[in-house]
Amino acid sequence: MGNRSDTISIDVAPVEIAQRRHAPLPENREVVFDVQDLGVRYGATTAVSGVDFDIYRNMITAVIGPSGCGKSTFIRCLNRMNDLVPGAQVDGKILYHGEDLYGSGVDPVEVRRRIGMVFQRPNPFPKSIYDNVAWGPRVLGMRKDLDERVERALRGAALWEEVKDRLKRSALSLSGGQQQRLCIARAIAIEPEVLLLDEPASALDPIATTSIEELMHGLKRDFTLVIVTHNMQQAARVADMTAFFSLEVGEGRRTGVLVEYDATEKIFTNPSDQRTEDYVTGRFG
């Protein structure tokens, strides 16, 4: 039961970007999401509009931007969680492997089964550790070799060693960071293709944050990851591609827009838009 996070250096500076392996070439990659002129309205207010970019397979795509710029609203469109918000109206298109997520006949339940999500605050169910992971597969009819599946998911979330002796204990007995990794295990247990992470580390301490970031690098092999974060350093550390969202203010309205989307290295070292540069340098300059 090694507490592996203790051995990890938590002092990761943005300088690291420069030393990172070269950014992969998006052209060679398969497109998972093709977002076309996406807009979201809540009643009369427009939260985001005109978002247009591609998200590639087996990469980590970060969505960054100031608070209120519609990052979370955007990511919740990718697995139709916004359907649950009364009055939310989605315009434009999101093609998932060419299939319109909001097309007629598309079942949001089926969408969410393929596109998993991890939330800002760890939200384990008030069940045992085992049942937290096993519940999804059980409900979805993946009952075969359930124990193995649970173990695989917990290993995938780098939690197995810490909890293997107390699987029947309540999930609420875990620490915040462990709870969040349990939520990741819960999400990957049903073998989605995409994992959406909505500020997954914002409620965690630095050590737990580091272990989540480490984990994301490992998950990239099997999943496509999209992460929303307000922490630019985090985006710089984990993401291959970065989308910068900003607020457009006009006529008393504030609307989130996509300013720039590029390889992370480019966004942080040589952005093409002035607003991106202001943001990237302004906060930590």
Partner: peptide, 21 residues
């Protein structure tokens, strides 16, 4: 832009149909 090898269906089929029902 690469095209997905297999066509993915987001429609409910089989078991999910029953669950939805």
């Amino acid at each position: 832009m690469a095209v997905a090898a297999e066509r993915i269906s987001l429609r409910a089929t089989g078991r999910s149909r029953r669950r939805l029902r």
